[in-house]
Design a protein around this nucleic acid. Sequence first.
DNA 1: CTGGTAACAGAACAAACGTTATATAACACG
DNA 2: CGTGTTATATAACGTTTGTTCTGTTACCAG
Lengths: 193, 193
Amino acid sequence: MPRVVDVEERRQELTDAAARLIARAGIGAATMREVAAEAGLTTGALTHYFADKRELLQCTLTASLQRRIDRRHATGGDARARLRASLVGALPLDEESSRHWMVTVAFCAEAAGDQALAQTQRDAYREFRTHIARLVGECSPAGDPGRLAERLIAAVDGVALQALFDPESWPPVRQLDALDEALDLLSAAATQR
Amino acid sequence: MPRVVDVEERRQELTDAAARLIARAGIGAATMREVAAEAGLTTGALTHYFADKRELLQCTLTASLQRRIDRRHATGGDARARLRASLVGALPLDEESSRHWMVTVAFCAEAAGDQALAQTQRDAYREFRTHIARLVGECSPAGDPGRLAERLIAAVDGVALQALFDPESWPPVRQLDALDEALDLLSAAATQR
DNA sequence: CTGGTAACAGAACAAACGTTATATAACACG
DNA sequence: CGTGTTATATAACGTTTGTTCTGTTACCAG
């Protein structure tokens, strides 16, 4: 057996390169040659790890969504703290989270014409919703957790989208302010009933 | 002077065709030939109205954003009713508004690598924010209108994004429910102070 | 030390792309 | 009724794209 290489790590490097290009200039910028060059390789390596461009893009979306999931997986603190941490992890607060948010958004229109991509995005969204709903249920028994989770996610996603369009107007502090206001508002509405 | 044709109308037809393709399968699907064919014409006509592809895409984004602005321009009723109508107009409730929402989102990553596109999107967002803030100020003097407007827009955009990713889970009724809940929540928070 | 296979680089190719150039048809105007 | 200009179709060109193919290097098993 020849040259030993961690295959999964190489694939990750290549999908990361694709994600960087997509976040920087759109899906159109992620050509085979550009992706390979961004990863410091050539098309020969790229085709060795992915059957075709379609598979590369599919894996890029999946990997990028997984990065976002990893980010919002909080462990310490009580349920309320873990809920807030999960929502904080969903905000584009730094370069990396902004990049993966941009990839998520960039694939939105693409997924409209590709069932597999659409399925991947829907699954990620529903996983997020379930995750948040569970935490909401743990820290505030009043009200429908699913509905409250959707409201919180909407608030976070709305802030995130505005931050992607206009980053200068949305520094981390402002994003966190908006999140905390949404949390306060919803917990107040839940307890008063 | 020869064959009389409404130039602005033709340009609108062509950018509409581009918008349909982009919403259907992403920006990559909007090739010169495809856009022309979608409009029932050929590339000869397309290059007659737009200098190059860059200008076509720029105009497509501008026209699509203008359609969304037109949609949320409400006249009848009191300030509160006009505020709600403007926010309703910003939701992807039917095929047309979903299409223009998809175009807005599709250009997000593209704009990251194109200053002109980014400027166009930022301007549209700030115009929307100003518009909503004015209506908020008219119907509820308590609280900072700008801040309240941002919260409402975040709620609407969040719902819109979720509806684009997972339309079946977000029929118009559910979107309107979420909007009305956000309106109630914010007006309650504003009056209690 | 020596095959043999995995990990790449690089060239090659057909298709599709944006763009430019050329040709034709339709109409207002003198 | 020509005539000149505009609107559009069609063809052609050079580039870029995704993909395939061929070669080369580096490593491990025997």
